[in-house]
């Protein structure tokens, strides 16, 4: 038990990731308002991206832009650039899917006149 506590205290980013991920997923499942569900979806997306960026951190390293173009490169001096590239793509695609789902919500509001999930289900019957 104590080694688990120690492992958590050395990884505060991971605890924040777990809180944001499970809270966002909970709101996506439970909340009745469609826009609140999308806020939960946005939290889940950004928490996973946050975790991926955390994996690329090296302590004492600077940003992945080369300081000198001629000197030999010390790999430990620069942060890992690969998670940054993957998460750049993921952020933009995440906002694109968010835009499509918001357009779906607007279309549903135009047809049913409410953002409440239970009301929409009632009117569908």
């Amino acid at each position: 038990m104590f080694e688990h506590l120690d492992a958590w205290l050395h990884r505060p980013n991971f605890i924040v990731f777990v809180i944001l991920f499970s809270w966002g997923l909970y709101i996506m499942v439970v909340h009745h308002n469609l826009v609140k569900k999308l806020i939960g979806m946005y939290l889940v997306q950004t928490s996973v991206i946050f975790y991926l960026v955390t994996l690329g951190v090296k302590s004492g390293a600077t940003v992945p832009v080369l300081l000198s173009t001629t000197a030999p490169i010390r790999v430990e001096a620069y942060a890992n650039p690969l998670p940054h590239v993957v998460t750049l793509t993921a952020i933009v695609v995440g906002v694109a899917t968010l835009g499509v789902s918001l357009a779906l919500v607007a279309a549903m509001y135009r047809k049913y006149g409410t953002l409440d999930e239970d009301e929409i289900l009632k009117r569908l019957e």
Partner: peptide, 22 residues
């Protein structure tokens, strides 16, 4: 959430230059 936290001790240390991702 508890399962994810249980797996925390298997992760590389924060800021480790020799972590598998790097």
């Amino acid at each position: 959430g508890l399962l994810l936290l249980y797996a925390a001790s298997d992760l590389p240390k924060f800021g480790d230059p020799a972590s598998p991702a790097s």
